[in-house]
Nucleic acid binder design. Structure first.
Length: 420
RNA sequence: GGAGGGGUGGCCGAGUGGACGAUGGCGCCUGUCUUGAAAACAGGUUUACCGAAAGGUGACGUGGGUUCGAAUCCCACCCCCUCCGCCA
């Protein structure tokens, strides 16, 4: 959520920033709702002050004059009427504000969609093969480690099962990535619920706008998380972090559930885009001054995973129009998959500035006794599993159809080669 | 799911219709004393909103209601604890 003070005081700057994202926001409505709210509040609070004063006076009297009681009853009615109007105005204002995405930071390039994104760096050289590298769906089938049709049998299209060395590879990767982030990058591992309340989804920015992309249990009003970012944003909701607590680095491994309504028909082969996938998520709560630098570090931590796996990757800087709703600045990390011959997005690292912190009410106290301020939050995958699985399988495939296990994973896998 | 108990400031805990944002204790901060520290003593110590300021308003789990006036009474919901049932 954007700060109402910012919208009130700099509507033109906000409008301009939102335009860069292709958002044509009803800022005039917001500004006038805000003005209305404040004028109603002034009136309401005046009446309440009057009522408090008279009530106190009456408490001291032995006899309460009937006309005084009568007048206060009328004041009470006016107060109730005003409270009703304030509530309506605030609800309207909140609805409008909740619908606005975060503002892109000044350095974020212009552009309407992904065609305006820029590749900022590339690492590694794609290998050359003496044979035509197969896509993972073929490799997975030959090796008997990915079974798409059984996934479909159980749950429908875009679900998959892994078995044998495939399941083991995913588990090895997960454990290795978590260990790397905990032991070398300073993150604290957390285990979180995969079903969350409505409020938690509002905090991260997934509700109310993106309900279509979420699975929802009607009976208990619980929502399946589309990323660990959701529960991690809720982790410190309504807290004031004491001086010396920040920065906080968390890593969490969870499944992610996505309805992929908007992507109907896209990427239907293999396990690139599925309704349920596992992910190791990196999450940070930091002081506002450091969030730019922390984003660079977060991105480094994600890149480190690619480098240690020895898989070529590139870093893409997202333009203003292609960023996620809560993000102010984002980089995507893409791994090269030689079988399907494409760059696979395995991580998206974002600085959400105070956008989620304001929604989730996460603050910190800079020094003892100082006023609480909103933290900045950042998130990024480190990394998304099925796509890394794809990249590993396709990159490390051998002419006989087997897959050589990357060195770093061998201790976790207990074998060097995946064969049928 | 059933029965019972409970949710008050950073923590503990008092308060059952009127001067209570809330006694007291602990913790923390500042000062006095001390070579320094501890102890003792004194003062301070929630948060949001409206307002240029003075000041005002709200918040005692949440939302409604009763009342001139609600932490306190009523209703609904949420959460926690204990026991029973079920269960990995």
């Amino acid at each position: 959520m954007l700060s109402i003070e910012l919208v009130r005081n700099n509507p033109d700057a906000v409008r301009e920033a939102l335009e860069r994202r292709g958002e044509h926001a009803p800022l005039d409505t917001i500004v006038s709702l805000d003005a209305e709210r404040r004028s109603l509040l002034t009136e309401l609070e005046g009446l309440r002050a009057e009522r408090n004063r008279v009530s106190r006076e009456m408490g001291r009297m032995s006899e309460r004059p009937a006309e005084m009681v009568e007048e206060m009853r009328r004041t009470g009615d006016r107060i109730r009427g005003l409270e009703e109007r304030v509530k309506e105005t605030e609800a309207g204002l909140e609805t409008e504000l909740m619908a606005l995405p975060n503002l892109p930071l000044p350095g974020v390039p212009d552009g309407a969609d992904e065609t305006a994104n820029t590749v900022v760096s590339t690492w590694g050289t794609p290998r050359t093969y003496e044979f035509t590298p197969l896509p993972h769906w073929d490799l997975g089938e030959h090796l008997g480690i990915i079974d798409l049709s059984r996934g479909a049998k159980l749950s429908g299209s875009r679900f998959f099962t892994l078995s044998g060395a495939g399941a083991r590879l995913q588990r090895a990767l997960t454990a290795w990535m978590i260990d790397l982030h905990v032991q070398e990058h300073g993150y604290r591992e957390v285990y979180v619920p995969y079903l969350v309340r409505r409020d938690t989804m509002y905090g991260s920015g997934n509700l109310p706008k993106f309900a279509d992309n979420l699975y929802h249990d009607e009976e208990d009003d619980l929502w399946l998380i589309p990323t660990a970012e959701v529960p991690l944003t809720g982790f410190h909701r309504d807290e004031i972090l004491e001086p010396g607590t920040l920065p906080l680095y968390y890593v969490s491994h969870t499944p992610s559930f996505r309805r992929e309504k908007a992507a109907a028909g896209k990427d239907t082969r293999g396990i690139k885009r599925v309704h349920q996938f596992d992910k190791v998520e990196l999450y940070k709560l930091v002081e506002p001054d450091s969030s730019g630098q922390e984003l660079e570090k977060l991105l480094e931590d994600a890149k480190d995973v690619c480098r240690r796996l020895d898989i070529p990757y590139r870093v893409v800087r997202l333009c203003a129009g292609d960023m996620g709703f809560p993000s102010a600045e984002s980089y995507d990390l893409e791994m090269w998959a030689p079988g399907c011959e494409e760059w696979l997005e395995v991580s998206s690292c974002s600085n959400c500035t105070d956008f989620q912190a304001r929604r989730a009410n996460i603050r910190f106290r800079p020094q003892a006794g100082a006023r609480p301020q909103l933290v900045h939050t950042l998130n990024g995958s480190g990394l998304a599993l099925p796509r890394v699985l794809i990249a590993i399988m396709e990159t490390y495939q051998q002419s006989d159809g087997s897959i050589s296990v990357p060195d770093v994973l061998r201790p976790y896998m207990g074998l060097d080669t995946i064969t049928p």
